[in-house]
Design a protein around this nucleic acid. Structure first.
Lengths: 190, 190
DNA sequence: GTACAATCGGACTGGCGACTCCGCTTCGAA
DNA sequence: TTCGAAGCGGAGTCGCCAGTCCGATTGTAC
């Protein structure tokens, strides 16, 4: 979806587009998905007209923000996965995905509610992460660090759920750490 | 909040109120919190006017539905908690709360977004559950079935998060069972 | 059976928010 | 420097939905 039509954006247009994405990320994350588009435009220092020229609907903006975050996560997991120890890489990536996904859940929900086919518009970027996680899971299982009966769907669900758990404990780092202990302990073969 | 003013409702009014609660529970659960109030009124077979006489705002209706569900859960945990085995009671209640909380998370979120002080309007009913869970947790820990460093906040967060996890696996009973194994394994002292 | 208070229903209102439109501004190629 | 095209901004449109109002209906006390 990203590389189909290429006409180099005018300098100011490119700058505004970037500002909009930054502002949207910030506003959506801190104040939720229901903020009026006008607020995002204001935060970016542009008019609503500009916002809607760059992103034809609010959902398109939301999707663009999502894609960006997902790509960032994918890139970071790539680094971690390069390490030698498969078990460590798996658990480190688990943490990374959970930590970086704060609020992402609400986004997906909002997108889905708007009738956007989430799996279509985000597929490219989710697939990257999914594949990486599948590889990490397999590696960790081969190394005997994770119970063998766990599939990728369960892992993905667990990542989302753990994200929610962590959001409840936003301001208690020690408690969050205990949750990781519980989950990781549960993931290991008994 | 429930026993302050008592004037016996006229028969039809009581019936409509009950219908509204049933319809709202059904509609909110299956189609989300964003459905127009009119849909709920129609599902209940009454006009919107009637809906708003019984529940002054949409959020009030939402809160009423929540209270009802919470009370039902509280009642059921009471039964389970009466058993002799503290460890079994704890894990059974964990399952029960997770299974019965499907969709509840979104409700709370919607309430909070509307500026309702969730802890005020639902306090009475949440406190019952919270207290029960605290008791069960303490019992299970005393019996050595649950790691001792876990507090009530972590348990509550974990319940919410596990609910989210389960929602991702809605149609795969075996996978859900595996998640329970993971979480319960993690909860036990290693 | 009657009367009246309680309740009903749904047309209507007000406000909000996504999106459009178009006159004005800015970019950048020549 | 010039000029056409690309882009900007924000007032205005439109549809939707929570919540109101009041004439019609129904329950119930006597």
């Amino acid at each position: 979806m990203s590389g189909s039509q290429e006409r180099p954006l005018r300098a100011d247009a490119a700058r505004n587009r970037a500002r909009l994405l930054d502002a949207a990320t910030e506003v959506f994350t801190t104040r939720g998905v229901d903020v009026p588009t006008e607020e995002i435009a204001r935060a970016a220092g542009v008019g609503v007209g500009t916002l809607f020229r760059h992103f034809p609907t609010k959902e398109a903006l939301l999707a663009a923000v999502m894609v960006r975050r997902l790509e960032a996560i994918a890139a970071d997991t790539a680094e971690l996965a390069a390490g030698a120890d498969p078990a460590g890489a798996f658990f480190d990536c688990f943490r990374l995905v959970v930590d970086r996904s704060a609020g992402k859940n609400e986004f997906t929900q909002a997108l889905a509610a708007a009738g956007v086919d989430v799996h279509a518009s985000l597929q490219e970027s989710t697939t990257a992460i999914r594949d990486r996680l599948a590889g990490l899971l397999a590696g960790a299982q081969r190394a005997g660090a994770v119970r063998a009966d766990l599939g990728l769907p369960e892992l993905l669900a667990l990542l989302v759920g753990t994200g929610t758990t962590m959001e409840q404990l936003r301001d208690d780092r020690a408690a969050r750490e205990r949750i990781y202990e519980v989950v990781f302990d549960g993931l290991r073969p008994h």
